[in-house]
Nucleic acid binder design. Structure first.
Lengths: 204, 204, 204, 204
DNA sequence: GATGAATGAGTCTTCATTCAT
DNA sequence: AATGAATGAAGACTCATTCAT
């Protein structure tokens, strides 16, 4: 076989990653064997290893790629100017996360949980993840400041704290949906609205 | 040989569980070997196996015991009548979670993440966990109803949604603290206050 | 496609052999991978395999070619009539062996050791090697007879034994130079002279 | 099983080493698989690995143990005072090497060749080996000085050169016996006598 | 003729579990 | 009851070789 084209190479990598995702999500990162992935990918051991030199690299790729792809989808929502009001923003972002299971056998929420757990023992992954979430939290902080300006958040509360609260809600949505399974984006959004008291309070 | 007393037996089980926690949290559930735990416990392989017949049982015990112990600490806060107002409740519960970590070599947040991940592939654990969190959410729903009665939550929002939002915040606090590490209980509580707009709105 | 010329074919074979030598000597016969050789040769896997159909063939070629090339250099020294006296002959032959190593990335002594070791498990190589060394020993026997005629060796000693001793010295020089590294041709020659006692004994 | 006695432990190690020797000598160091050794030892994979933590350690042990055991046998011959005359010494040492196949399936000469080859790529082994042979050569130098005092070697030749020559003969005997197989200790000894010319020269 | 991606049997090593003492 | 040596199935990864292009 002559040299393979770059697209074909990328397609093969994607094919392997797809297989890895599907196995990881079913069995977890460490309980998945390379053989599982190899069989799922439809390729041979050697082929898989020629694209990803070790199981660890595959794990890193599976997790960071998820992170990056999700990032691409969420950023536009966070960047919108003026920012969406709290409940709307929450509804949009959680819906995006929920919808992300674009590919068959791929559920972002499960992968996210796996990645968080793995980050506890994989320093490199931990760093990458921290960088990524720090960035998201930065964007949320900007959004929070916008809310304060728009009278949608208390001005005396540090925007950073609002960002932390909001990020918690997002993370928690992922966990709750993954484990209990009965949480819809609208529900958390409604819950936040219920706790905000905005309407109630404003109704003189 | 004389039969071992029940207390001694319980003490041994605790000793092994302690060892398991410390290893699990450092290495993760699957990357931890029985040998790690055996060495950490200071007992022999045979002894450990006579108390926990398999690694899976040990994993189950480590996770469910955490769940139960935490439950015992949080229940009183949720049960208080009348319920604490939203921000206070959040502050109390997260602080309890945070404090629970103090025990040497034991960090509830890490164990929780491990447990959630494991629940994805262990049906029995998943059921146990669901049951437990469903109960917590039930309590939260009762609390939310209390808030609505007290004018601390919008009455038209389903109490269930408020409970879901609140549980998300708790889960998310655990994740954010485990990964980013720079989140204090007061901060998320303040963030919620900032988003509630209660004071602001009520001002005029 | 045009058939490749015989010279070009021979040049390619030499190029591959050169690459193989350089790898073998660095890593040993079995720890060298075909990929090492392929990369060192600058050719493709397919190309290398079209010249040498297997790793074993390449090993055989690397070892026997060395043997043959060395043979070509040593034969003239052994054939000289009348034969050089013992110490001179030893000096010349070891110097020739030593000099043969100069070629970049090629050290005959290392290759010889590899070949000897491989001959222990490769029957074909063992036969080839035996034939070759039996021939050399035959030449040495002729030389020994010459020495006896010239009064340079005891006439009552079987010439064959002298040949065996002499071949041992040569083999041993290779080993000692390869492992200890601090042995010069003149030194072994001088050592033999010292043990010969010729001058001393003849003195009175 | 309770703690094993030290002797039993040593016996097991010996049993594994024996198995390793027998395989190494048949197949060579790298072509031997751990599975070969495991099967030959009659133990399980885990057991073998609990005594020798890696194949490399086993190789090191196999080679250095040979070196040490041989050392114990040869040292007394070299230390004798006054030293045996050259031919006798050569005869004794080569005979000792030859006889060394104490154990079934163990041939020192083959192991020596394997060790020398391995030392080319294993720095640790190379160092160990150098130290060992440097010591032997030191002893030979002392012997050579004795010969010179006794008029059995030319006094003007550096004793070191005589030692180098002698060590070459020993190494070469090993190689020649391993490859050509038809060399007896007496023959090399006789060959050296024939080259010494002692009797001839002394005749008049 | 040449290329180099793909194959898959085979390698070393680990580790949950057992059981003779 | 307790010990810890032993088991052996299974895991990650390699590498000689092939063959579609």
């Amino acid at each position: 076989m002559p040299k393979i084209s770059d697209e074909k190479r990328a397609a093969r990598r994607a094919q392997i990653l797809e297989a890895a995702w599907s196995c990881f999500q079913r069995e977890g990162l460490h309980a998945t064997t390379m053989d599982d992935i190899i069989r799922a990918s439809g390729l041979s051991a050697g082929a898989v290893y020629s694209y990803y030199p070790s199981k660890d690299e595959l794990i890193m790729a599976a997790v960071t790629t998820s992170l990056t792809e999700l990032s691409g989808l969420i950023a536009p929502i966070l960047i919108a100017e003026p920012p969406l009001p709290p409940q709307r923003l929450l509804g949009e972002v959680t819906a995006t996360i929920d919808r992300f299971a674009v590919r068959k056998d791929y559920d972002l929420k499960r992968i996210a949980l796996l990645g968080w757990t793995e980050a506890q023992r994989n320093e490199q992954l931990r760093q990458t993840m921290r960088g990524y979430y720090a960035m998201v939290r930065g964007q949320l902080e900007r959004v929070a400041t916008g809310w304060q300006r728009a009278g949608q958040a208390a001005p005396e509360t540090p925007a950073k704290d609002i960002a932390k609260l909001f990020l918690s809600i997002l993370f928690g949505f992922v966990v709750q949906a993954a484990i209990l399974g009965d949480v819809a984006p609208e529900e958390v959004a409604a819950g936040l609205a219920g706790l905000s008291l905005t309407d109630v309070a404003r109704a003189p």
